[in-house]
Design a protein around this nucleic acid. Structure first.
Lengths: 140, 140
DNA sequence: CAATAATTTTGACAAAGTCTAAAACTATAC
DNA sequence: GTATAGTTTTAGACTTTGTCAAAATTATTG
């Protein structure tokens, strides 16, 4: 990804320290939650309000600069990698989240058999399982 | 689905009026939320506490008698239809939720390209789109 | 640098669920 | 049928994740 400042300007967003820091935090910590990111930003620029973290994440998500994923039993997570239609693999034990590229093809399962008249714009896939660490723990 | 009372006994669950009513409500209102179901149950048996609705839904979900789905921006929804690996189609406008059978085949996309050492047990697919009613509304 | 528009902060609020302890109930054994 | 042991239900406080609104601050434009 390019320079965060350039990214903001390209989308006509005023450049602020908070936005730069959040953007960098998302880039450096893929699949982090809003709380994780707030913590990161605080280490970088000292302080930020909870609300600002949400504001920034929302505006960046709306502009398509970052992507929000919301697996069950987990707060929302954010990532940098947009527009490449990849999916996610989530551990039921610890929530660890990994990227996986589409199993079926370039633009995946965008065609359900019966669309019930809906206009489908996204097929979201989450693979659920147990990561190696949690598997080891549950066996012991 | 069979008689709710039989279902409960088969799973060694004491039979209570609340459980029977919740089970019937789920059967009659697929994809309803906990709140919707509480409302239904109240119409049927007069009263039930919020906590009992959650207790019952949790125990039934744990036993695999019903299935919980949790689309983003929506409270959890429950359904009767378990074990047939179907997916869901959700309207971004009104949350209307429809069943769709698996696009890819019998046991679907259970194989991600790179599994990162995870043991995958489910591939959850949500198709996002706009239902006919909401499409009409947004055009006007 | 001044004016304007936008963002950030602060603090209250909301929705969806969970936790706890006490009361009420169910199932089982007599 | 009763008594008992074990669950379930209830009520109410609490937690987490996130939003709303107004005031204070900051970025951009000329």
């Amino acid at each position: 990804m390019q320079d965060p400042e350039t990214t903001l300007r390209q989308h006509d967003l005023p450049v602020t320290a908070q936005r730069l820091a959040v953007l960098r935090a998302v880039a450096n910590h893929p699949h982090a939650t809003a709380d994780d990111l707030a913590e990161q930003v605080r280490q970088e620029i000292g302080a930020i309000s909870r609300q600002s973290v949400y504001n920034v994440l929302n505006v960046l998500t709306d502009k398509g600069i970052i992507r929000r994923i919301q697996p069950a039993h987990s707060p929302a997570r954010y990532e940098d990698r947009v527009g490449d239609n990849h999916h996610h693999l989530v551990c039921r034990g610890c929530g660890r989240t990994e990227d996986v590229c589409c199993a079926v093809g370039a633009a995946p399962c965008l065609h359900a058999h019966d669309q019930h008249g809906f206009q489908i714009d996204e097929a979201e896939v989450i693979y659920w399982g147990t990561c190696p660490a949690c598997r080891r723990k549950s066996r012991s």
